[in-house]
């Protein structure tokens, strides 16, 4: 770790003010991604702005046909929230598969969304569920928010404050884990709701999380595992590494899509 200044503001307004005054400052939520990067000296922020004291960023509530999840809500809280379990059980179940117990008790939805790790779980869920991401400045639909690997439309100093998720009719998720890191190597989230059928894929794409339109069409016509089983994914659009070639990942996307549909019921 390099030296940095440490701030712990009590409101979003204060946090944004500190961040605006120093473009090299970074917000920290659960720290499960940022801290390892700091320890490995991969990152050299001048200041770390700890969001954990900002009460307004916490909690899950139901507002009509939406769930509103505060950015600081931890994976463990999403996994065990009665509201989430009742409204979108697939999202609660997904949260329960992120990392390990320690990670789930520190990591937050806002941090995960802002980080947009191509192998992270939540971005696929939010994309498939047609969520909108609320920041201190604006609201952005998930379709526009995620912007390739580790990039989003967030500007420097802009904070995710909450995630608004329309409650679907049904949703399901399945992933194949990378054997070493246990992050997703190919994960598929399927949802059927007011906006139709949406299918999003994490872990596999060469350009981060993406929607699989051919599968959406297949499922819209026929909501069944067999419908997606017939959809082959283009390996040319997939990522490859020592754990999974692009061909293998393309194959896994189809397998996981089938299983996600089974999961959704």
């Amino acid at each position: 770790m390099y030296d940095f200044a440490y701030h712990k503001p009590a409101s979003v307004a204060d946090a944004v003010k500190i961040l605006a005054s120093d473009p090299e400052a970074r917000p920290i939520s659960g720290g499960m991604t940022l801290l390892p990067a700091l320890k490995l000296r991969l990152n050299k922020p001048t200041a770390v702005v700890d969001l954990s004291g900002i009460a307004e960023l916490r909690g899950v509530k139901r507002e009509g046909d939406k769930l509103v999840i505060g950015a600081l809500t931890r994976h463990f809280e999403v996994a065990t929230s009665a509201e989430v379990k009742a409204a979108i059980p697939a999202l609660a179940a997904m949260a329960n598969t992120i990392g390990d117990t320690q990670v789930r008790n520190r990591g937050t939805m806002g941090g995960s969304v802002a980080n947009n790790d191509p192998s992270a779980d939540y971005p696929a869920a939010l994309l498939a569920l047609g969520a909108t991401i609320q920041t201190d400045k604006r609201t952005v639909p998930a379709d526009e928010f995620f912007n390739g690997m580790f990039t989003t439309v967030l500007e420097v100093g802009e904070l995710v404050t909450a995630i608004h998720i329309p409650i679907p009719e049904k949703a399901g998720y399945a992933k194949m884990r990378n054997p070493a890191s246990r992050y997703s190597m190919a994960g598929v989230f399927v949802a059927k709701g007011a906006a139709g059928v949406r299918v999003a894929v994490n872990g596999a794409g060469a350009n981060g999380v993406f929607r699989e339109k051919a599968m959406e069409a297949a499922l819209a016509a026929n909501w069944s595992p067999d419908a997606v089983a017939a959809v082959k994914v283009d390996a040319g659009l997939m990522n490859g590494d020592i754990h999974g070639s692009a061909e293998y990942r393309a194959h896994l996307v189809t397998v996981m899509a089938k299983r996600a549909v089974v999961d959704a019921g």
Binding site: P179, A180, S181, D241, I242, H243
Partner: peptide, 10 residues
């Protein structure tokens, strides 16, 4: 290439 627990499967 497998120089950390992210890539070395313990």
């Amino acid at each position: 290439v497998s120089g950390s627990f992210m890539d070395y499967t313990m």
